[in-house]
Design a protein around this nucleic acid. Structure first.
Lengths: 137, 137
DNA sequence: TTTGGTGCAAAGGCTTTGCAGAAAG
DNA sequence: CTTTCTGCAAAGCCTTTGCACCAAA
């Protein structure tokens, strides 16, 4: 059983990784596809999915399980917290120190073996707030 | 624009609410469907989805956006933290005080208007740990 | 040359939805 | 009676996958 076969750095894979690291917007697979297509017009959506999956297994990118129907991806592998807009689904970073201590507190309260934790703040982004204000005024 | 039309308490809706409040297992829609079918054999999966959606909009149940492909539902409406097993997807409650203060800290760091936050611990449940041990021994 | 990767399109899994008949109020 | 709800089945959305050809090493 070889769980780590040889990985080839194809043009597609490289561009996907580059573009994802370039932005801080936590794009969905489809948003990535649109970005990649500008540099590689013939790339397929399947390839984007496959590579995002592989890169996240390799720990080179993060697959985010934030709310909403689509998964999102993050080129910043360091553990950090996120904010999600309930209106448009956009996800932003929150640059605050992550609380490792909370994992120990949690571990004392459960028989699950805790590996990590994630925090998601839920709110409304400035753009959607603006749009909402316009609607009610 | 009537966002709150009259809600009728149908047998199906009532049973769905009752069964969800009865368990602490955070079932998926399909798991709910299996549970409900024992009491209402002719219920449809669509009805289960529709009612879970409606009940969560009314704030009578919680729709959980925890990791994994399927949404999960929770009869306990009070804000609390969860643990999810990376192996089987099972979700448990974590009975620890939720940290309201963290929302203020976060608010100071973002232009999103923060409404609430959720914390998910990720780990391995006792059963899956057990299964894993067996496999490697 | 030898694998692993790609593009394409079809299939899959979960959820939503249109519709005609059923039932709550 | 009126309006909402249900069961059924079809459709929808996102993601995964099989396959023949392509390309990295």
């Amino acid at each position: 059983m070889d769980t780590n076969p040889k990985i080839r750095m194809t043009k597609q894979r490289q561009v996907i990784l580059e573009e994802l690291c370039k932005v801080t917007s936590h794009p969905t697979a489809d948003e990535m596809y649109q970005m990649i297509r500008k540099r590689l017009p013939k790339v397929s959506l399947g390839t984007v999915y496959r590579n995002l999956e592989i890169l996240s297994e390799l720990g080179m990118v993060l697959k985010l399980d934030v709310g909403g129907t689509q998964k999102r991806f993050d080129g910043n592998v360091e553990n950090h917290y996120h904010v999600r807009c309930t209106e448009c689904g956009r996800v932003g970073d929150l640059h605050m120190p992550t609380d490792k201590e909370i994992e120990q507190k949690a571990q004392a309260l459960t028989d699950f073996q805790i590996k990590r934790h994630s925090v998601e703040f839920i709110g409304v982004c400035p753009e959607c707030r603006e749009a909402g204000n316009r609607r009610v005024s």
